[in-house]
Design a protein around this nucleic acid. Structure first.
Length: 225
DNA sequence: CACCAGGAATGTA
DNA sequence: TACATTCATGGT
């Protein structure tokens, strides 16, 4: 069975399930249920904030991230250029609430260097091709697939489907696919869903809202990659 | 595949 | 109060 054939029967199921989620939860960016990056970024400053959040949110919950962002904003450090100039110890202190502060401070600096020096700013980075950008991001220490895709989708408006633990759980619970590897699921969703970054944002958000709701009611089930 | 890298919020006794 | 669990992960 070819990849395309394998995908085509799953495509309908995905679209059917997503229609149900839209029906059930509405548009996540308008309903206010989506607490993460709840406004679509407009300005470069917004986009830089999203990039910083994408690192801070690694292995922690959103309220811890919000606290760090508030600290950075009040210290006038909420931009990539400011972060680059800021001593690492100061940065560590401000983002302590997100945990892994020593690692994350270095990671944020790595990203800031990349966008400022190598990409010559966010504006020009946004004009680059998405696969090129993705490979570049994955080459930065501290950025894995999920973080790279968070940045591409939510900060740079690139149509890349983010696969996280919630997405994997969703796929398993609905028997959409047997395989749950990152690459397989990403290809499957990108094949199934109209290639539009706003739709990818909405769908990813909807899956998380849905699965968090289920999590609250029942206990958590086993997750594996 | 196993293990490790911290903090903070929440739940439990 | 003490202790366990959970949280949008990535590197080795």
């Amino acid at each position: 069975m070819s990849m395309a054939e394998d995908f085509s029967d799953k495509k309908e199921k995905i679209n059917m399930l997503m229609d149900e989620l839209i029906e059930k939860h509405g548009n996540p960016f308008e309903s206010g249920q989506w607490k993460l990056w709840c406004k679509r970024p407009k300005t470069i400053r917004d986009r830089e904030t999203v990039i910083i959040e994408s690192i801070l949110t690694q292995r922690t919950n959103w309220s811890n991230v919000e606290k760090s962002i508030r600290n950075l904003r009040s210290k006038k450090l909420l931009s990539l250029s400011k972060i680059l100039k800021c001593p690492t110890e100061v940065l560590e202190k401000e983002i302590k609430s997100s945990g892994f502060a020593r690692q994350k401070a270095l990671r944020i600096k790595n990203i800031a260097k990349f966008f400022i020096y190598e990409m010559k700013g966010l504006k020009s980075a946004m004009k680059m091709e998405k696969d090129y950008l993705r490979n570049k991001l994955l080459g930065i220490h501290g950025i894995g697939e999920e973080t790279a895709d968070d940045i591409l989708l939510y900060a740079l408006d690139k149509p890349v489907f983010v696969i996280d633990q919630y997405t994997k759980r969703f796929v398993r619970q609905h028997n959409i696919a047997e395989k749950t590897s990152y690459n397989y699921l990403q290809k499957l969703f990108e094949f199934s869903v109209k290639k539009d970054y706003k739709i990818y944002q909405d769908y990813h958000a909807l899956i998380i809202i849905e699965m968090k709701g289920k999590n609250a009611k029942k206990g958590n089930s086993n997750i594996y990659a």
